[in-house]
Design a protein around this nucleic acid. Sequence first.
DNA 1: CTAACGTATCAGTGGATAATGATATGACAG
DNA 2: CTGTCATATCATTATCCACTGATACGTTAG
Lengths: 116, 116
Amino acid sequence: MTAQNIQDDLSAPDTLELRAKLFRGLSDPSRLTILDALVSDERNVQEIVGHTGLGQPNVSNHLRCLLECGLVSRRSKGRFVRYRLADRRVADLIRNADQLLASTANGVDACQSYTD
Amino acid sequence: MTAQNIQDDLSAPDTLELRAKLFRGLSDPSRLTILDALVSDERNVQEIVGHTGLGQPNVSNHLRCLLECGLVSRRSKGRFVRYRLADRRVADLIRNADQLLASTANGVDACQSYTD
DNA sequence: CTAACGTATCAGTGGATAATGATATGACAG
DNA sequence: CTGTCATATCATTATCCACTGATACGTTAG
């Protein structure tokens, strides 16, 4: 499916699943921490491990998810692999969510479903 | 935690989890379908059931999640409970995601992690 | 009061997935 | 080559969670 087709048919079932998948990429605290680490700089995996305190295989796994979801991009540099946000809008999306949270914080704070 | 406190400390661990929880509310196709049903109109549960084809307990459960996450609001009207989007920005967030998808569609289309 | 209806909750089940330790792959240094 | 380092993958485990059918709760109609 091309980008144009998606724009033509934003409510198709496939599009719903793409949407869900995109948000799923953003729905994990570890992945959000990784994205935070990438907002300001391009970083390699070890730097992300150091910045986040997560295990290296865990980080690689999350990076794979983020990469395949189009939220980050990567380029090899010698033995290192440097990751960065795929698009300025990724950071925008997170900022927009934060603004929404700031307004509805009470409600979100009380969100308990499937959590305890 | 108040809205103001959240704005003061957007990178605290708790905030990361709130962010994740918000995105998780948006990360399920069923919930996105429900939100789609609410973009144009306020609806009661049965209408949503009819609109989405989901089971009634399933819809109620998702609505509880969406409600507690602050994405929708509810008001009783006789025996009925009418739901609507909590904020215009909820729809905006979905639109922003769609725009991002339109650009990075190839990558997202190929997103396979933890999916197959 | 009682039946019918709208909604919410409960218990059970299957599938998804985050985290970890071990291991494989690949690249560079010496 | 050979060892070392950076990254990725694998196997395992434990947890989470979406869905379903049964049921409870609450409200309105008759």
